[in-house]
Computed example of a mutant assay.
Amino acid sequence: MKAAVLYRAGGPENLRLEKREIPLPKQDQVLIKIKAFGLNRSEIMTRKGYSESVHFPRILGIECVGEVVEDPSGEFRKGQKVAAFMGGMGRDFDGSYAEFAVLPKSIISSFESDLPWEILGALPEMLQTVYGSLHSALKINKGETLLIRGGTSSIGLLAAELAKSEGLKVISTTRNIDKQNLLIENGADRVLIDDGNLSNQISKQNIKIDKILELVGTSTLKDSLASVVQGGIVCMTGMLSEQWSIKDFAPMDFIQAASYLTIYDSGKIRVDGQYFQEFIRKVEAKEIKPVIKKIFKLEEIAEAQSFMESNQSGGKIVVLV
């Protein structure tokens, strides 16, 4: 099989396409023929060496869709369509940057759909992260105002669509004034240009923000916490800034009294597979339209990562295998 293997941390050119033997599944594992996968920021951070627990060589990739080739337990039938994500995929064991992968059954969900693979490949981690952030972490309610910081990311765009469909008012942010229309077209009622001091803008314009989905990360977290109403919730889900931690974090200074800070991590909390199937049905019915910015081939994986790192995307990047 073809696989893109990372032997050492560094630039996208370090992803080497090579031939490997197709792995064999053991008990509680399934061999999957990978059809497509979405790119994720965490894979760039792993490639750069920011994930200290990841040992090389490693095949990256934290999600995929494909078809079952072999399941020793017989739970999944040959040819069955499945999605897989997280659970150590592409980090503790080899992931989706390949034509085949052996994955634990615990991270696999079956589904039915006639959607093309390039659309299906965009969905698993994106849906899990957005649904979990909005419902498990932020506990959104109809009529609330949600601010999405980092709105032009694939997670931000889908979060706006889902929140709007559930009756929330959505405010999305971008640093690029040219991307305002993209945000409005994908669910945002209003756009704020992120100058790093949103709390000041929000205070001056007397905007009431009930919940904030923080996708930029630690570099803007303090400002986001100052932007939410008393009793509101800020959920840090993304790290577009590529920073894991905050130096000299002082909770009494960062968090407003009687307000809440939480996180969402799809590697630790999994959304039930039935929601993924329901989400696919909504995409099929065109009730939800995930934004796919660009599609690459496996042979173009280095180019795909470079494109994501350039911050040009404004939607999900998908690789067809």
Score class of each variant (00 low, 15 high):
residue 111 F to C: 10
residue 119 I to W: 09
residue 83 A to Y: 12
residue 67 E to M: 06
residue 90 G to I: 04
residue 110 S to D: 14
residue 114 D to Q: 15
residue 81 K to V: 00
residue 86 M to T: 05
residue 105 K to D: 01
residue 64 C to A: 11
residue 82 V to E: 00
residue 71 D to C: 08
residue 109 S to L: 01
residue 82 V to S: 01
residue 119 I to N: 03
residue 74 G to M: 09
residue 100 F to N: 07
residue 80 Q to N: 00
residue 69 V to N: 11
residue 85 F to T: 10
residue 101 A to R: 03
residue 67 E to V: 03
residue 70 E to Q: 09
residue 86 M to C: 04
residue 96 S to E: 10
residue 73 S to Q: 05
residue 118 E to D: 09
residue 118 E to F: 13
residue 84 A to H: 01
residue 104 P to I: 10
residue 94 D to F: 06
residue 106 S to P: 11
residue 106 S to G: 13
residue 75 E to S: 11
residue 91 R to T: 10
residue 65 V to S: 03
residue 93 F to Q: 15
residue 113 S to L: 02
residue 64 C to Q: 10
residue 92 D to R: 12
residue 92 D to T: 15
residue 119 I to K: 02
residue 115 L to F: 11
residue 116 P to N: 13
residue 94 D to N: 09
residue 109 S to C: 13
residue 74 G to H: 12
residue 97 Y to I: 14
residue 98 A to N: 07
residue 72 P to R: 01
residue 75 E to Q: 15
residue 80 Q to I: 07
residue 79 G to I: 06
residue 117 W to K: 13
residue 65 V to Q: 01
residue 63 E to Q: 00
residue 89 M to W: 08
residue 120 L to I: 07
residue 80 Q to D: 12
residue 99 E to N: 05
residue 101 A to D: 05
residue 118 E to K: 07
residue 87 G to P: 11
residue 82 V to A: 01
residue 75 E to V: 06
residue 108 I to P: 08
residue 79 G to V: 06
residue 89 M to L: 07
residue 83 A to F: 13
residue 78 K to G: 00
residue 114 D to C: 14
residue 96 S to T: 09
residue 79 G to F: 02
residue 81 K to D: 02
residue 92 D to V: 08
residue 70 E to P: 03
residue 112 E to T: 10
residue 108 I to M: 11
residue 84 A to Q: 00
residue 106 S to R: 11
residue 105 K to N: 07
residue 111 F to L: 05
residue 119 I to A: 08
residue 109 S to H: 15
residue 86 M to S: 10
residue 120 L to D: 09
residue 65 V to R: 10
residue 115 L to E: 02
residue 80 Q to C: 08
residue 79 G to M: 06
residue 95 G to S: 09
residue 104 P to E: 13
residue 118 E to P: 15
residue 109 S to V: 15
residue 66 G to F: 02
residue 101 A to C: 03
residue 107 I to V: 14
